[in-house]
């Protein structure tokens, strides 16, 4: 069976899941590519398990991967395909969530 936690195109995730295999799988997508989170997991954990960062934000377009993880630095906002924006460290990953990290034309 294909392991969705495996690196995509050789890109390694930033975070390491320590309790591998535990938790109900939650299917979602990052830039259209299928991925798998775990029930109860925040979306930042689900994304960074397979990606090195969350894309960039203005003003300097520095790539970012979260900072405080308690919902205060606002470093981890990501866009969803349904138009919503969510703070990834306080928003649980949901089945069918479609995350867009590749929207570099986006202004905050």
């Amino acid at each position: 069976m294909e392991d969705l936690d495996d690196p995509i195109d050789g890109v390694q995730g930033r975070w390491v899941r320590l309790a591998r295999g535990d938790g109900v799988p939650v299917p979602f997508t990052i830039d259209g590519i299928p991925a798998r989170g775990r029930a109860g997991e925040m979306s930042i954990a689900a994304i960074l398990a397979i990606r090195p960062d969350l894309g960039s934000l203005p003003p300097d377009r520095r790539s970012r991967a979260g900072f405080c993880l308690i919902g205060l630095c606002q470093d981890c906002w990501v866009r969803l395909e349904d138009g919503r924006r969510v703070r990834a460290c306080t928003t649980a990953v949901e089945p069918g969530m479609a995350v867009r990290l590749d929207s570099s034309d986006e202004s905050w």
């Binding site: 930033r14 090195p52 960062d53 790539s63 970012r64 991967a65 979260g66 900072f67 405080c68 993880l69 308690i70 630095c73």
Partner: peptide, 8 residues
């Protein structure tokens, strides 16, 4: 990216 607060 990769630098976090301790609380993080």
């Amino acid at each position: 990216p990769g630098v976090y607060t301790l609380g993080g």
